[in-house]
């Protein structure tokens, strides 16, 4: 476990910024206490100070996880967000997509969101913008990347992909052993 280097911090913030924009500041500077990012086994954890102090006493080999796992660094030092970061992405997300109840299940099985399943989408969403996916009852389901801008969404045919799937809460069941 160690703090992130500057390059790693930059990679993490760039990835987070695609979904929550300048709201990263709210994650870094929280009124309710001190929170920080820590790297442990190539995974980035978002930890409160209290939890961090407790975890510091555990040997590195024995420590499985701490705080909330935001994602992990690949072997080529790229940062990938995990679905476990959804709890912190959803409240601050700038661009959202609502999925119709009929295609919720499809998304939760790891499929892309099609135009036919698109309930609503935030205005002004640009193409390839990171979006958080909600059910129509405003339950965050996952996140992905907008395949089409809002303008284009109106014109495409119903079977066209609108949001590329990146992570969904179904992963808690599907890949339970790799999510930490």
């Amino acid at each position: 476990m160690r703090p992130l280097t500057e390059a790693e911090t930059r990679a993490v913030f760039e990835k987070l910024g695609r979904y929550i924009g300048e709201n990263i500041q709210l994650l870094v500077e929280r009124p309710d206490g001190t929170y920080c990012f820590r790297l442990h086994r190539d995974r980035v954890y978002y930890v409160s100070e209290k939890l961090l102090k407790g975890a510091a006493s555990i040997p590195r080999g024995s420590l499985v996880a701490l705080g909330t796992c935001f994602g992990k660094f690949t072997k080529t030092q790229k940062f990938r967000l995990n679905v476990t970061a959804l709890d912190f992405l959803a409240p601050y997300a700038k661009y959202k997509v609502w999925v119709k109840p009929g295609s919720e299940q499809s998304f939760l099985y790891g499929n892309h969101v099609l135009k036919s399943g698109l309930g609503r989408i935030t205005e002004n969403t640009a193409q390839y913008q990171g979006v958080v996916v909600y059910s129509m009852a405003d339950v965050p389901l996952g996140f992905g990347v907008a395949a089409k801008s809002t303008q284009d969404c109106r014109k495409v045919d119903p079977m066209a992909i609108v949001v590329f799937h990146q992570a969904d809460v179904g992963e808690y069941v599907r890949s339970e052993d790799t999510l930490t």
């Binding site: 911090t9 913030f13 910024g17 870094v28 500077e29 001190t34 920080c36």
Partner: peptide, 24 residues
């Protein structure tokens, strides 16, 4: 060399805010 795990958390936060400002 890496920063200590339980170092100056306020300074770490300051660095991250600086980085965010530069990125924005």
């Amino acid at each position: 060399r890496f920063e200590p795990v339980l170092g100056d958390l306020a300074a770490e936060r300051g660095r991250q805010l600086e980085l965010l400002k530069a990125m924005n």
